[in-house]
Design a protein around this nucleic acid. Structure first.
Length: 444
RNA sequence: GGUUCCAUCGUCUAACGGUUAGGACACCAGGUUUUCAUCCUGGAAAUCGGGGUUCGAUUCCCCGUGGAAUCACCA
């Protein structure tokens, strides 16, 4: 019978979850779920000064929105002190650890050091293969500030042992601290978990992305208008691939496909362009209703967005226009700023020379607009397709530019805009006729 | 500096030692299109250097070079 796989989510609540944290959590999650394993959530808050419950709540919110659920926890190391104290006492009694009569930071105080056996540790990393490090370099490292105040290396080892963690999957930055943790596991008499060190995510400068170096948080992604499905998919691709040309995955598909063997070992650099493209793909997959909900929710918190999202024409905009151009919802705000949707709310102010297509005469343009007016006046259906049907034949006959440019321009007053049929359907028949009338008058 | 890790198009990456070194993003050109966007087609673009091993190295080994991580009473 195979041992049940148990992994852990161990963020320290000293900041929001950033891209590096999330990717590590994701890989832990995928590994556990694809092996019928378990996920334990644990806040590593032994640094009391930098930890706080607000950060915990924010981290939990991110996990929940991303759909990275866990089976046990959340535990807090700050509430498990007795276990560390216990381990500490056992180690001191067995002379595996000792009280050192000096503290560099606090004169007069002592610290607890681990009696390093000074040997070479070799472990088999699931991503990188065999790694050997001589622990002599670490010396008798500190494992606690006092008998009741343990630090990271001890708490991790004690917790992993107590929680039955079988696989420790974390960033490559932990490789060199792995041997010292193995030393502690051995000293405590536990079984050594399997390690897997993931490639770091780096920025344009090739440096590790971290809290203090360019790593953006989940909430920031969300505020930029990326959706969980897009973020998950993109992050999975940072350091993992399925071995073929597929690039788009839902979370469940990732669970099916994921394996640590296919995690590669050179650092991956974060790119907004690729994220945009992956996110857009997932946006396109969304059912219409869900997409609308996302847009409205997103716009609600922006002043100019809230104003337009309530407009009667706006739902038409979402489905017919936004979907094909938006990679992330913040782009809608940019479009609003640039006035791209002014035509929805306000009738355009048009200059006569702009409405005329190339060298065509004003008389001819007027004729075309009048034709459009007359035809659409009698239209019974009002969809982009039906409007197109009404005008297309005429436009092909007369010259598409000659007919369609002034038509679109009277409706939008913009040299660049979505196609006239979509615009017309969004505006509604009455408004379209009104704007056409204005255009016709201008030409007279 | 010590230790450890890493090295394929600009970026993410594929290639049981034998491929015209493949895909995606971005970029460029053409097509569709009244404009923008979408979409379609095409293009440019890579194995860090030097030695081995081998009939044959992107692939295995060594050296070099370059980059990164880590060396806390942070996690």
């Amino acid at each position: 019978m195979k041992e049940k796989i148990i992994v852990r989510f161990p963020p320290s609540p000293t900041g929001s979850l950033h891209i590096g944290n999330i990717r590590t959590l994701l890989f832990n999650y995928l590994f556990a779920r694809s092996n019928d394993g378990e996920v334990v959530m644990r806040f590593e808050d032994t640094d009391r000064e930098r930890s706080n419950s607000t950060h915990e709540a924010i981290a939990l919110e991110a996990l929940s929105e991303l759909g990275l659920d866990f089976d046990k926890g959340p535990f807090r190391q700050s509430e498990r002190t007795h276990m560390y104290v216990d381990a500490l006492q056992r180690m001191i009694k067995k002379d595996i650890a000792y009280v050192a009569e000096e503290s560099e930071e606090d004169a007069g105080k002592h610290v607890i050091r681990f009696r390093n056996p000074n040997k070479k540790i070799t472990f088999n990393d699931l991503v990188r293969g065999e790694i050997t490090i001589d622990t002599t370099d670490f010396g008798d490292f500190v494992i606690a500030r006092s008998e009741t105040n343990p630090i990271y290396h001890l708490t991790v080892v004690v917790d992993d042992l107590e929680m039955g963690i079988t696989h420790v999957i974390r960033g490559e930055d932990h490789i060199t601290s792995t041997p010292r943790q193995i030393l502690l596991v051995e000293a405590l008499g536990g079984s050594i978990p399997t390690y897997a060190h993931l490639p770091l995510i780096i920025g344009n400068d090739k440096k590790k992305l971290g809290k203090r170096h360019g790593a953006i948080t989940y909430q920031e992604f969300r505020d930029l208008g990326y959706i969980p499905a897009g973020i998950i998919n993109y992050l999975a691709l940072l350091g993992w691939n399925p071995g073929d040309d597929r690039e788009f995955f839902t979370k469940n598909e990732l669970v099916k496909e994921f394996s640590l063997e296919r995690v590669n070992n050179s650092p991956a650099s974060f790119s907004y362009e690729k994220l945009d493209s992956v996110n857009k793909h997932h946006l396109l997959q969304l059912p219409s209703e869900e997409y609308k909900e996302y847009v409205h929710t997103f716009l609600a918190v922006h002043p100019e967005g809230a104003k337009i999202s309530g407009h009667p024409h706006f739902d038409g905009i979402i489905e017919n226009i936004l979907r094909e151009r938006v990679h992330k919802f913040s782009e809608i705000i940019t479009m609003l700023h640039d006035g791209e949707f002014n035509w929805i709310i306000n009738q355009p102010i048009i200059k006569k020379e702009d409405i005329i297509w190339k060298e065509t005469s004003a008389k001819t343009i007027e004729k075309h607009l009048k034709y459009a007016y007359k035809t659409l006046e009698n239209a019974s259906k009002w969809t982009p397709e039906s409007i197109r049907e009404n005008l297309w034949h005429y436009a092909e006959e007369q010259g598409k530019g000659e007919v369609l440019w002034p038509f679109r321009f009277s409706l939008t007053g913009q040299k660049q805009s979505p196609d006239p049929f979509t615009v017309a359907s969004v505006l509604g028949k009455e408004e379209v006729l009104d704007r056409l009338q204005n255009g016709i008058q201008l030409l007279q």
